[in-house]
């Protein structure tokens, strides 16, 4: 009787040692380096810095998401970004927040230059320094750097900034996915 108890104890001790060793090894072997989740989220955001999410930029929104905010507040990113965020965070993908008007086509700001008075308001509003100009000198938008956030539109006292939709050119044109050409449903 006593020997059975001893055997049992010995067996469990050995098992404990083996598994403990394995777990310890695994902890070293498969160690996960820090958790730069905010950076990972930030990398998925479109970096328009438009503030439509209610935060002053993409990074702050990334921090907010990491702290538990919803992932569906980014209209420039649209469904694709929500999907990627959902995959990254293991959360459920939701449709874009109702507070937002939905996905807009890509656009850039354009200053009607003969109406510009050189007030520099738009320059101060631009989150990515995509507008150049000086006080009382005409301003203009560097189209390639403009993220289309439209933060410059409201501050303009002359209302001379338009958001222009980008038209595809031969260079930016993309193929469309085939439409499934299943015959029309039969009336039976």
């Amino acid at each position: 009787m006593a020997s059975v108890v001893i055997y049992a104890i010995v067996a469990f001790v050995i098992l404990g040692l083996i598994f403990g060793g394995l777990l310890g090894y695994a902890a070293i072997r498969f160690k996960v380096e820090g958790d730069p989740i905010v950076d990972q989220i930030d990398a998925l955001l479109p970096q328009t810095q438009c503030g439509q999410c209610g935060y002053p930029g993409c990074k702050p929104y990334a921090k907010a998401i990491a702290d538990g905010d919803e992932i569906n507040k980014c209209p420039p990113g649209g469904e694709a970004t929500i999907q990627e965020l959902a995959n990254l965070l293991g959360r459920e993908a939701k449709p874009l927040d109702d507070a937002h008007e939905g996905e807009k086509p890509k656009q850039v700001a354009f200053i009607r230059e003969d109406e510009c008075i050189g007030c520099t308001k738009c320059i101060q509003a631009c989150p990515v320094d995509a507008i150049v100009g000086a006080a009382k000198k005409m301003h203009t938008v560097i189209a390639d750097e403009c993220t289309g956030c439209d933060l410059c539109v409201d501050p303009c006292p002359e209302d001379c900034i338009d958001m222009i939709q980008l038209q595809p050119t031969v260079d930016t044109w993309t193929w469309k996915a085939p439409e499934r050409t299943i015959p029309v449903k039969e009336v039976s």
């Binding site: 299943i182 015959p183 029309v184 449903k185 039969e186 039976s188």
Partner: peptide, 10 residues
Amino acid sequence: LKLRQRPISF
């Protein structure tokens, strides 16, 4: 197919 609203003969 009818339940799934797919064309049947196709």
